[in-house]
Design a protein around this nucleic acid. Structure first.
Lengths: 125, 125
DNA sequence: GTCTTGACTTCGTGTTACTCGAAGGCACTA
DNA sequence: TAGTGCCTTCGAGTAACACGAAGTCAAGAC
């Protein structure tokens, strides 16, 4: 069983964010100890990781909550959950393309600045 | 010369966002026509694209503004601008790795759901 | 035994980056 | 001259945190 702090380190989320997510109901069946402290087991940790992936695909808190609720409804919601996953898989693929273009842009920029700076140095020799 | 609307289509930003960016000073030397409408030339359009790349690397409005101001200061700020670009090139590379992991996660998820659904269909045959 | 330290809690306000919509100016067309 | 369209400013609203205050509890120091 992990505390908020340990989970923060493991997931690279802030403690604030983890509390925010749990309060919003994004982690089902979250436990508390006798002092009311949040306690995460492996399953809760995995949920948080899943939530993070969905969020990073651009899914809103509200829609993640909806997805979690669908999961809690049981197997009958599987086809709908599959549809949602397919949609966000597509978004993830687009994000990958954009990220690739972004890296290319930044490398190009860096190369250009590097050239300019080296030019100035050789001019001064 | 392009209007806000045309630029919105070209850059895939909303008109609201474009006005917001120009008001924040992220596009230097933006022109206006006699009715006070914003007018973009190729250079302004290119600036907006650059701004978008920097923003997508996670640079805040404030820091983009700072970068634009450095540009307007002239060649003396080139070394500093280079440092900034190197920093965000690194961030862009990390984003690319994350995006890759995200796609893998979503494909894995999709595959699993697909399997479950097909399993149910064949069970019912 | 009390006192400090440390980790957690809730709760309310602050911040960023949009996002929206109202109210209005200007010109072109019917 | 009335309507349509495209732009303007400006102020309020929203999402997703981010932050800090104030409080609870327990374990170790003295």
């Amino acid at each position: 069983m992990y505390t908020v702090k340990e989970i923060a380190q493991k997931t690279n989320l802030t403690e604030h964010t983890i509390r925010y997510y749990t309060d919003k109901g994004l982690v089902p069946n979250i436990q508390r100890d006798k002092y009311n402290n949040r306690l995460f087991d492996e399953e809760s940790l995995n949920w948080l990781i899943r939530v993070k992936y969905l969020k990073d695909c651009g899914m809103s808190i509200k829609d993640v909550k909806h997805f979690v609720d669908l999961y809690l409804e049981g197997d009958s919601s599987i086809p709908l959950r599959y549809e949602i996953i397919l949609k966000y898989r597509e978004i993830a693929r687009e994000q990958l393309e954009e990220a690739t273009r972004r890296v290319e842009f930044m490398e190009e920029k860096a190369k250009r600045y590097h050239k300019i700076i080296n030019q100035v140095i050789s001019d001064n020799r």
